[in-house]
């Protein structure tokens, strides 16, 4: 069956081991996790988990049903119409061409966020596909380290 990519938001009680319940469910039932982010929802006892996964339609349906079954799960949102963003930090050596790097980052809605004695750190936050393109483009400037933040999404 054809695999589809899906972004799923899970609203859960912000309590101990809730992340283990969610990630354990994926591991135990053989579902894929492409990325997973989690943070508390302000002024509530809830957390928002964003999971990017892939699988057949049947598998995706099972994933949402099984997530709903977890006792601390309040809501599962299978995103359709969404704004989707991902953040990435990239560290370059200081002797790289900084104006090139600055221009590259600007093209992806980012910029230089920190400069040290021997390195410079840039940040880009954009759609996951564009983040991937950005990372590809950085290769010619010999990045020292790349840290991706995982996808967050909000329904329109």
């Amino acid at each position: 069956m054809q695999k589809v990519r899906r972004v799923i938001s899970v609203i859960v009680m912000n309590e101990s081991s809730v992340l283990a319940r969610v990630s354990g469910l994926f591991a135990g039932r053989g579902y894929n996790i492409e990325s997973l982010t989690v943070a508390p929802i302000p002024e509530s006892q809830l957390s928002h988990i964003t999971i990017v996964t892939n699988g057949s339609e049947k598998v995706i349906e099972q994933i949402t049903k099984q997530l709903n079954k977890l006792i601390p799960t309040l809501k599962v949102i299978e995103h359709e119409e969404m704004v989707e963003k991902e953040m990435v930090l990239v560290k370059f050596p200081i002797d790289a061409n900084l104006s090139d790097i600055q221009a590259l980052c600007s093209a992806y809605n980012g910029g230089i966020v920190n400069v040290g004695l021997d390195m410079v750190i840039t940040m880009v936050a954009d759609e996951p596909v564009r983040v991937k393109n950005f990372i590809e483009a950085t290769k010619r400037y010999n990045p020292i380290e790349i840290v991706r933040g995982g996808v967050v999404a909000i329904e329109r």
Partner: peptide, 16 residues
Amino acid sequence: AVGISRPCTKHNYLVS
């Protein structure tokens, strides 16, 4: 215990 039993209980609690 909660870690090991997570996939084979409906729910579990560690009382803290």
